[in-house]
């Protein structure tokens, strides 16, 4: 078999790599979305000290 020829295993690896790539991109989007929601809601605000209140 010539090295340049498209083998079934290449197609399979391409599909797997594409899938992993898309999942990673989706994961980043979810983390980004969650961060925006939590920061907007003030989840990460430091607790108020007595002097401030």
């Amino acid at each position: 078999m010539a090295l340049g020829k498209q083998h079934e295993i290449h197609t399979r690896r391409y599909g797997r790599n594409l899938g992993v790539g898309l999942l990673l991109a989706a994961f980043i989007a979810i983390i980004f979305g969650l961060t925006i929601v939590k920061v907007t809601r003030g989840d990460y605000e430091p607790p108020r000290t007595e002097a401030e209140s």
């Binding site: 078999m1 090295l3 295993i9 399979r12 599909g15 797997r16 899938g19 992993v20």
Partner: peptide, 20 residues
Amino acid sequence: SDASLNNPSLEPEASFGDFY
């Protein structure tokens, strides 16, 4: 490597769907 594709003793590689 590509050259190893001719080795029949290799185990089949899982596809994305197999992991799913």
